[in-house]
Write a protein that binds this DNA or RNA. Structure first.
Lengths: 181, 181
DNA sequence: ACAAAAGTGTAGCGAGTGCTACATTATAAT
DNA sequence: ATTATAATGTAGCACTCGCTACACTTTTGT
């Protein structure tokens, strides 16, 4: 890797941390530059404009999140175990910033503007793929449908967790288990 | 009602429409003023500052959404009928702006700052209350738990619908019905 | 009728935004 | 060693933001 590219990814790495901690909203060039220990002038030297910069940074974050999922070497889980497990996982202080950013990305992406829309769908599809691989289906269940159901449930859990609706989440999981008894 | 208050709610009404159409993100005082047919100067005459203005406007929108829910004079629905029904409902062009705004509000509220956090929780609680009243439980189901489950599912559906994941949503609903057969 | 209060226009401040022009220095390629 | 390329600093532009100061008119209350 050339020296310039190395510097570029150094900067990217620090900006990733800043955006995870502070959100896209407060990611001005000057804020990002301060966090990366450089100047806005230099950011625009390495990136053509802010859009390309955010594309790179958000893609990096998305890759990290996907890697974390793939490296979650958990044994196959049944449906409700999976929901419980991911609910606990998203309360982890290391994971939480990713979930907050995920929600922010959804809100922005709902205007269908790239790169946000594209990246959000990419992440969503990886979530689905993860469920399809990791879900242990029981008799009478179909893999794809249960994976889709897990996707819906976990997204709902993530949304409600951000509003501290933990009691409702737990109650919902119990309701789910009651139904499939 | 005094004349001033009447004018204030006229302005509020127009700003409600603007924010439903364009989101909180682009709701600057100047944009809002233009949409309401007045000047930013006058907005700050009727409202003490932008925060109070947004509190009033967002509360109004929240009340509208809640009223729409309450006036949905539907017969009691079983769980999966409810999910299907609300999924169709949120594709209605009249409802969709509310859902987009709901997602935007969630993203902002996740920083726990008032008035956003407070309003978002208020709306969430009304959703839950709606399910608790409208869900027809079947034997072996508990009202509260099924309402919570509906809450989680519908929020998940709303999130994924904004990313156009309609196939996964439908597949999830089928999976759900398969499970409770 | 007169005073108090509410309504409205114009103009601008100070801060933040993405981005650029102009300059200089450091590094790399030949 | 010379030249081309990359890296960095300083300054600032044109714009938007929330908000305010000052002035003036209109309405309202007594």
């Amino acid at each position: 890797m050339k020296k310039g590219e190395r510097r570029k990814s150094e900067l990217t790495e620090k900006m990733v941390k800043y955006i995870l901690a502070n959100g896209i909203q407060s990611a001005s060039l000057r804020n990002l530059a301060k966090a990366a220990g450089t100047s806005d002038r230099m950011l625009l030297h390495y990136f053509t404009d802010k859009e390309e910069l955010l594309t790179v940074v958000l893609s990096t974050i998305s890759k990290q999140l996907i890697l974390m999922l793939d490296h979650t070497e958990i044994e196959q889980k049944t449906f409700s175990h999976m929901v419980r497990y991911l609910y606990q996982m998203m309360k982890d202080p290391e994971i939480k910033p990713y979930m907050k950013l995920w929600l922010e990305l959804i809100a922005i992406a709902s205007k269908k503007e790239d790169p946000y829309y594209r990246i959000a769908r990419e992440i969503g599809n990886h979530f689905y793929g993860f469920y399809k691989e990791t879900l242990k289906v029981e008799e009478g269940e179909e893999q794809e449908k249960m994976a889709a159901l897990a996707l819906v449930m976990v997204e709902g859990v993530a949304l409600l967790e951000s509003l501290d609706f933990d009691e409702h989440i737990l109650s919902a999981i119990e309701g789910l288990e009651g139904v499939r008894r």
